[in-house]
Simulated assay, not measured.
Amino acid sequence: MTQAARFVVFGEALTDFIRQPDGQWRAVAGGACWNVARVAARLGVPTGYAGSVSTDVFGQELYALTREAGLDMRFTQQVAKAPLLAMVTSTTPPDYFFIGDDSADLHFDPTRLPPDWLDEVQVLHFGCISLAREPLAPRLLQVAREASRAGRKIAFDPNWRKLMDNPGYRPLLRELLSLSHYVKVSDEDLGRLFAGDPTPLATLQALAPQAEILLTLGGQGMQWIKDGQVLRQPAYAVQVIDTVGCGDASMGGWIASLLRQPQAPAIAHLQCAAAAAALSAARAGAYAATWDEVQALIATGSSH
C-alpha cells in the first residue's frame, strides 16, 4: 500500500509531441510538475501528483504511469476533457507551443483532494505553465496560501515558458515567491523572468526573503544560496545523452533529500540535486534515478 504523501506536487501533466528529423512525431508522457513528482517518488519519498488528466488514450497513459511510479493516486484526477499537448517543433534550439484551450489540466478541483490531506504533507510544490493558465492558476495559488497558513513549506520552480510572458503572471509570481521556502531557478529562467533587470538574482532574493534558492547553471553545476551564504556544486561527470527533465530531476532530488535526511547539511541536499540531474542527463528522456543510484554517484565524487 502506498504511504500517505509527505510531498505533493501541483501542476500539469501533458503529452509532448516531439518532431523527429524525418518529420514524424513522437509522443512522450511528460510535464515539468509531473516529472518532479515521479523523481521524488523514485527517490523513496511518499509523493502525490495533484493534477488532472484526460480520459482518452493520452490521459490513460499518464494515469497508468502515475500509478506505476508509486505516487499516491488519491491526488490525481481524471476528467472527460481534451488532453494538454505540447508540440515541440524543435529541440535545438527549443521551439514549442501548447494545445489545450479547455483541456483536462484546467479542470483540476482542489475541493476533491483527500480529507485532511494537509495533516501528512510537509512540502507542496508548484511550478511551470500551470501557474500561467486560467482558471487553474488562481486555484493553485489559493492552495499555496492555505498550506502556508497551516505551516507547510512551499517549493517553487518557475520554469519559464512563453505563456508566462503576460502581465497577469507577474502578481502571481511575486506572491508565490513570497510564500516559498525552496525556489529552484535556472540561469536562463532568471534572465527571462526578470528581463532587463541588471541584478535578477538579487531581485529574486528580495521577492523570496525566506527561501533557500537552488540556482542551476547547466554544465557549470549549481549553487545553493541563502542569507548571504553560497555553496557551489560542480556538475557530476556523466556521458550526456540529453538534458530533458534535468531541471525537474534536480528539483525532485533536492526536496527528496530534504525530506529523507532533514538533519543533513545543505551541501548534502545540493549534491543530491546535482546527482539526480546528472543521472537524468545520462539517459534518454526524463529519467528518474533511485536513491541508491544518486548516493553511488555522490560517492564517486566525480565532477567536472
Rank of each mutant, 00 (worst) to 15 (best):
F58W: 10
S148L: 06
A147H: 09
L65G: 09
T47P: 05
G51S: 00
A69I: 07
K153A: 15
H107V: 11
G44L: 02
V143Y: 01
P94V: 09
R139Y: 07
G51C: 01
L140V: 04
Q78T: 06
P46A: 12
A144Y: 00
L141M: 11
D116M: 13
P94A: 14
V123G: 10
R74V: 05
M73H: 08
P46N: 06
G59S: 06
M73I: 13
L85E: 02
F97W: 11
A82I: 05
G44W: 01
T92W: 13
H125R: 04
F75W: 13
T55I: 03
G151H: 05
P93C: 07
D95T: 09
A41W: 05
A80W: 08
A150H: 15
K81P: 00
D95Q: 12
S130Q: 03
P83Q: 01
P115L: 10
W117M: 06
R152W: 08
P110M: 09
A86F: 01
F98H: 01
A132F: 00
R152G: 06
L136H: 03
V121Q: 08
L136Q: 01
P115Q: 15
F98S: 00
A104G: 07
D95V: 07
D101E: 10
Q122K: 13
R139L: 12
P46E: 04
T47V: 07
P93A: 12
A82P: 09
R139E: 03
A80C: 07
D116N: 15
L124G: 02
Y63H: 15
L140N: 01
P138Y: 03
L106I: 11
F75P: 07
G127E: 08
Y63S: 13
G151R: 05
L106C: 10
T111E: 10
P114L: 09
